[in-house]
Design a protein around this nucleic acid. Sequence first.
DNA 1: GCCGTTTTCGGCCCGACTGTTTTCAGTCG
Length: 583
Amino acid sequence: MTNRDIAAVFDQVADLLEFQNANPFRVRAYRNGARKLKDLADPLSRLVADDADLTAIDGIGKDLAEKIATLVQTGSLPMLTELEQQVPASVLPMMRVPGLGPKKAAALYNDLKITSLDMLRAACEEGRVRELKGFGKKTEETILAGIALAERATDRIYWSAADEIVQELLAHLRPVKAIKQLEAAGSYRRGKETVGDIDLLADATDVDAVMDRLGEFPAVAEVIARGDTKMSVRLDSQLQVDLRVVPSESFGAALQYFTGSKEHNVEVRGRAKQQGLRVNEWGVFRTTDDGEQGERVAGATEDEVYAALGLPTFPPELREARGEFDLAEEGELPRLVEVGDLRGDLHMHTTATDGKATLREMIDAARDRGHEYIAITDHSKRVSMAGGLDADRLRAQWAEIDALRPDYDDIVVLKGIECDILESGEMDLPDEVLAEADWVIASLHYGQKQPREKIMQRLLFAVEHPSVSIIAHPTGRLINRRESYDLDVDQLIAAARQHGKLLELNANPARLDLDDSHCALAKRAGVPIVVSSDAHHTGGLDVLPYGVKQARRAGLTAADVANTLPWKQLKPLLATPASQLPG
DNA sequence: GCCGTTTTCGGCCCGACTGTTTTCAGTCG
């Protein structure tokens, strides 16, 4: 079992325990444990085989350590089997209905024997739900409307799509004169690859003016809730937007609170408590001797709030309780990479294969964007649907690049190729051709269903190939659409380190591959990351900021990202094992 | 279930909003 498999078991246990109304802190322990395992660098299977002390892992105690060992050794967990006998897993979707938590879902299961969304709908339509204690007519209506939402299980949207909506919302709200400050918070601000809902925060005294204006946003389908400071609406697209309106003296505290993550805030507030302080969305307050909220010590800005707790202002991308507090204590909070640090783009296509712009158009567009260098990397012949290049056509394209070079003294155009790693494990072009290239991307488009052993054989062959520079979109996942192929990312990173190869962070918003936790592992191993656009038209060059967001979430600095270097300094990195790099 | 320069037991972040209650539980973030 992989670390993620084991984490999934713990998450399932947490879901079932929650349904059974178990101690919420016990539920949290399982969820927290699952989270920590997903970010763990070392495979648990190896740690167990080595008889390592698993309780050294933060969030893993004696009990979870034993369960991990059981899972590694037997592939199953008796406790989960037992829980599933007590509660059918089919009841869990009920908790996805907005307004239904563990208590109400359990009442529906225990009193009405409801075990599916279909049965729940029938019970609502027959008016049986309103008869239950704690339920009423209104609740029944809310559930009925919510079932459709739960069934649709609307995907979290790409960060890039959320950004479009956020910009529209901000533009819509800004004309309100009462608004002094306005920010989008939540997972959007943390730069998460997908966003589940949009959180907006306004500094204003005229609350009604702001809320009325949000209600007038054209895409609003429904107002879910509206109180003195908080309003929630649902858009036509099903996306929920939460608005919070606070006074200036609380804006920083509210922004900190509303940005999250939840786990980060739990840590922040726990630390505050130890210092005799209380943090809420209204500010940082001293706690009086009788435990009441006392004098306010901070709140207007985030800097002020964190400073009051003796903490630096964490970049939003790092606020995930994934080790940022330890880094801060050691004074090693990184200065994260920025879009402006990138000097070149090393993955793009042209009309020679499946791109929509010509060679010259791509070069012009890249130059307009200030790139110092680019690599032209069309597909190799195996990608027949894209009209992939054979050796002759590739050499013809390189001759074309040579012919164009005199026209461009301010941008370096590299002769590259995105060469497929064939199902057989061979490269799709002859070695002598690859040896002539400035930049060789290896990637895997076919045979993605092969077993792990075969996939790894292919990837490792490419990593060891003397002409290969980098592995592109190394896991092959497409967010919300396709799982990654079956690979061992740790092994790939180790091989890249050994052979001096780079790994791509593909900035396409549907890929973002490697993801943040994998990039963090690569950083720890000293393997440089290259953030690339994989552009198939000139506008496609503009996705780099999405990749940089993901890189920042991984804690990468400019030094960890190879294409922040001038080409002359990047080139020597190739085929230099990371262990031999300076620094 | 985890954790500990106050603790091996007793804590574990904190507040807004709704609906169903006649003072609060459940849900949500």
